[in-house]
């Protein structure tokens, strides 16, 4: 348990040192959601109808906003190089890092959903479904944004590039999650769809750490 624990502890210390990094995506989500009634109309039936989709897209962007932090600090401080010499597979360390990232950065974002849901006058049962889809889908989204961050480690100006590269890969997740939400509002069964979404997340959680590990190795220099 030693090594895994060290990664989690380091992440915790970073979060404590700079809590702003956790708050920034939440702030972003709030701002985007507040803009929607201003840009559209304060009509609550209209807002309730498009609300879930808006929250999904805004959360997606907020997750991607964090992409740069995922590996960049560890990369510039040489922590990633240390992982190479640890007694665990490199991809395993990456997976633990993704898990901590999900816990410390993504989970607070998901917990914001009821608040922004109320702002868009979405009904409680739809908010519950929204929460479930986000919980099931975010592991996949975390993995993909991790790959974006890892691939752009060696880029001159990574900035928005990782977001642009990764967004098209999010399409199936968005479609499935939106499908779950529309089906619930229509009163149809969503079990199979949620299972598909979970399968996608599971597949991403298994395969992506390997791809991310390969991408980080490239940027650390040579293929050790």
């Amino acid at each position: 348990m030693g090594i895994e624990w060290r990664i989690i502890q380091r992440e915790w210390r970073l979060v404590m040192a700079r809590p702003g990094e956790v708050l920034k995506p939440m702030w972003f989500l709030l701002l985007v959601i507040s803009l929607i009634p201003l840009a559209l109309s304060p009509d609550s039936t209209l807002l309730a109808e498009i609300g879930p989709a808006m929250i999904w897209v805004a959360t997606l962007l907020a997750i991607l906003l964090n992409m740069d932090h995922l590996f960049k600090d560890d990369y510039s401080e040489g922590v990633l190089e240390q992982w190479l010499f640890w007694s665990r597979p490199f991809a395993w360390c990456v997976a633990i890092k993704l898990l901590t990232h999900w816990l410390f950065y993504i989970l607070p974002l998901i917990l914001m959903t009821p608040i922004v849901g109320l702002m868009l006058s979405i009904e409680a049962d739809v908010i519950a479904v929204l929460l479930v889809t986000l919980l099931v889908a975010t592991p996949a989204l975390t993995c993909f944004s991790g790959l974006g961050g890892a691939l752009t480690l060696g880029a001159a100006r990574s900035g928005v590039l990782g977001v642009l590269v990764m967004l098209p890969l999010f399409v199936p997740v968005v479609i499935l999650a939106a499908g779950v939400i529309t089906r619930t509002t229509d009163g149809a069964g969503v079990g199979p769809l949620l299972a598909l979404l979970a399968a996608f997340s599971l597949g991403a959680a298994i395969l992506m750490p390997l791809a991310i590990a390969a991408a980080i190795r490239l940027n650390i220099g040579g293929s050790t």
Binding site: L151, G154, L164, V165, M166, M208, A211, A215, L218, N219
Partner: peptide, 25 residues
């Protein structure tokens, strides 16, 4: 995305392999 990633990377060797990972995913 693949064209953009290649053009943004500093080292051409790394760029090729990074694009390869992205293309496979």
């Amino acid at each position: 995305g693949i064209i953009g990633l290649r053009s943004a990377m500093l080292d051409p060797n790394t760029a090729g392999k990074a694009c390869a990972i992205l293309a496979l995913v």
